[in-house]
């Protein structure tokens, strides 16, 4: 190990420890037991085709080129890091980001459903964060809806010839926000308000989640752009092999 690498690792470790000490509170995700069983089952079933497609997509990506496992592992690790950092926001409460935009841009949204699922299971089992009963709903919002939004926006902006880095930033940021919008709507469907029904309830939940999440979505966009810049300079061959560079042409 070179001196430089040691320094890098030391720096990153300090960074992670500093964040780990930050006050731990539940943020984001629908909590265990907060969705009636019928909704849990419905969202779970809705996730199955995406997870199956994701599994097949990952397998074919790896069969095509074993070396793309580097980027796949990095995308997964990125979700691990980003979704564990709870960050204070302008509204005076904390929330965390999703980190799913990177994987969606690199590997397509279906692959991310598997990566996101791993993180959600980890948090549900070990952290009582999110939950096993709400796993389906949380997977749908964080690992399916968000990545699809990110991917869609990225492809659209590419078509419109928007600046490459701006496209990545917007895709990741809006994907993050979209996850929270879906969470709000999921809660609203399960808890329609007496006056005004689902729509009124959705407005309430979005009112809780959205303002907190906006600055975090910006951070997520910035960090995703940063890591893509890194990959573009150091992992050109891998990016080419998964078709990231080709798509832009």
């Amino acid at each position: 190990m070179t001196q430089k690498q040691k320094k890098q690792i030391a720096a990153v470790s300090i960074f992670s420890i500093a964040f780990g000490i930050a006050p731990a509170v539940n943020a984001m995700h629908i909590m265990e037991g907060y969705l009636a069983p019928k909704y849990c089952i419905a969202w779970g079933i809705l996730c199955l085709p995406f997870a199956a497609a994701g599994f097949l997509k990952i397998r074919s990506t790896l069969n095509e080129n074993r070396r793309s496992i580097t980027l796949l592992a990095m995308s997964g690790a990125f979700i691990f890091v980003i979704s564990s950092l709870k960050i204070p926001s302008v509204t005076g409460s904390c929330s965390h980001m999703t980190g799913t935009g990177l994987g969606a841009i690199l590997f397509g949204p279906c692959s991310v459903s598997i990566l996101g699922l791993i993180v959600l299971v980890f948090q549900a089992v070990l952290l009582a964060h999110g939950g096993l009963t709400t796993l389906g709903a949380n997977t749908f919002s964080m690992a399916i809806a968000g990545p699809f939004a990110a991917y869609g926006i990225y492809r659209l902006l590419k078509k419109l010839k928007v600046n490459h880095l701006a496209a990545i930033f917007l895709a990741a940021a809006i994907g993050d926000l979209f996850t929270y919008c879906i969470t709000g709507i999921q809660l609203a469907v399960a808890y329609p308000s007496e006056a005004g029904g689902i729509a009124a309830s959705a407005a309430k939940f979005l009112g809780v989640f959205a303002p907190t999440q906006i600055p975090l979505a910006v951070i997520e966009g910035l960090l995703t752009t940063a890591i893509v810049i890194f990959l573009e300079s150091f992992a050109k061959s891998e990016l080419t092999s998964i078709g990231f560079f080709k798509k832009e042409a």
């Binding site: 006050p23 509170v25 539940n26 943020a27 984001m28 995700h29 629908i30 909590m31 265990e32 037991g33 907060y34 009636a36 069983p37 709870k86 204070p88 926001s89 509204t91 005076g92 409460s93 904390c94 929330s95 549900a124 089992v125 070990l126 952290l127 009582a128 939950g131 096993l132 009963t133 969470t183 809660l187 808890y191 329609p192 308000s193 007496e194 309830s201 309430k204 939940f205 809780v208 989640f209 907190t212 999440q213």
Partner: peptide, 29 residues
């Protein structure tokens, strides 16, 4: 600001809409 979780705010909102709410399942751990 206390910087609590926005998830807690979410469950507070559930109670506001629904009245008392007891989660029907507790985390495995």
């Amino acid at each position: 600001a206390k910087f609590g979780g926005s998830d807690d705010a979410g469950s507070v909102m559930v109670e506001e809409i629904q009245g008392e709410y007891t989660p029907w399942f507790t985390p495995v751990l």
